[in-house]
Simulated scan of single mutants.
Amino acid sequence: MRFLFRVFVNVSILLTFALGTFAQLYKYQVTSNNKVIGSVEAHQKGNGSLRHIIIKSRLQLKLIGNVNTDIEAEFKNNHLLSASSTRLTNKEEEKNKNKTTTQLVDKNYQIVHDGKKSELKQAIQFVVGDLYFTEPKDIKSVYSETQGQMLDIRALNDGQYELIMPDGKKNVYTYAKGKLIEVEVNHVLGKVYFKLIDS
């Protein structure tokens, strides 16, 4: 009986790799001024040439209240097919203002950000969501599913990378052995840290 179980497990593992199916889940605790203010979950799954990223952020901010952000990105053959980002706060009227969608149409991307339409005429292979799963070695720019535009990224010290936001603020991503262990986010309310707690 044990022999059959081992054979079944080995065959299942081989089929999983042969079909290219995988899943990753990372959980981060969010702190500000040494106080826990929320959590981030980063989930990636793939099957053959298809890949799907989901990022869920749940924050409790003093001046704003609850801020829930959901980001999704779909890839085929490592090219972005579509992405969406929705940020909801306690204020109902802000729901439509904080949504961004990106859709590949023919060879260009149709983007709607804060109700404004634009087009991006370049291939997108790396998005901000990818930073949770892949150290951006030799990557110079990434597409922001939230901002609806390309952002510059540059290497700092070993395992550290600086993502430059549209307003000039810089977020720092820190990796250990290729795994994202911390994000330092700089915004109007000060510094916020995402620290890996489970993977």
Rank of each mutant, 00 (worst) to 15 (best):
H113G: 00
H113Q: 01
G168Y: 03
E74Y: 12
N66R: 07
K76I: 14
D114H: 02
T21G: 06
N77D: 13
I37P: 01
N47R: 02
G48E: 09
Y175I: 07
I71V: 08
F133A: 00
F5H: 07
L50T: 05
H52L: 14
S144F: 14
V7Q: 06
T101G: 00
E93N: 03
M150S: 12
S49A: 07
Y161V: 12
R58P: 04
K56T: 11
K195W: 09
N33A: 05
L80F: 04
K140A: 10
L80I: 02
K45E: 10
K179E: 10
V105A: 13
L151H: 05
K95S: 14
F75D: 04
E94Q: 12
V128G: 12
R58T: 03
P136W: 01
K56S: 14
E74L: 11
E72C: 01
P166H: 05
L180C: 09
Q122F: 03
A73M: 03
S144N: 15
A176F: 12
K137E: 09
R2V: 15
F22M: 10
Y193D: 09
A83K: 07
P166W: 03
K95A: 15
A176P: 04
D198W: 02
N157E: 15
I54A: 14
F75A: 00
L88W: 00
L131W: 01
S141H: 02
L50D: 04
A176L: 13
F22S: 13
V105F: 09
K35E: 13
D114W: 00
F75K: 01
Q125Y: 06
K76P: 05
E162M: 07
R87E: 13
L88F: 01
E93Y: 03
K35Y: 02
E41T: 10
N157T: 14
K95D: 09
L81E: 09
L15G: 15
L25F: 03
V11N: 11
D114Q: 04
L25V: 09
Q125S: 07
Q24V: 09
L120T: 05
D114E: 01
V40K: 11
K35S: 06
R51I: 04
H79D: 06
K91L: 08
K195F: 05
N68P: 09
S39Q: 10
Q44M: 11
Y109D: 08
K169T: 15
N33K: 05
N108A: 12
S144T: 14
L88S: 05
G178D: 14
Y132G: 07
S118L: 08
K191A: 10
N78C: 08
L50Y: 04
I53L: 14
N171L: 09
N108E: 10
S85A: 09
F22Q: 02
Q44A: 13
F22Y: 07
K170Y: 10
L63D: 02
Y175A: 07
A23Y: 15
G168R: 06
N90V: 03
Y173A: 06
N77K: 06
N78S: 12
E41A: 14
K179T: 14
S84N: 10
D106W: 08
K116G: 00
N66T: 03
Y28G: 00
V30S: 11
G38M: 02
K56D: 13
Y193E: 13
P166T: 07
N66E: 07
K179G: 03
H43R: 01
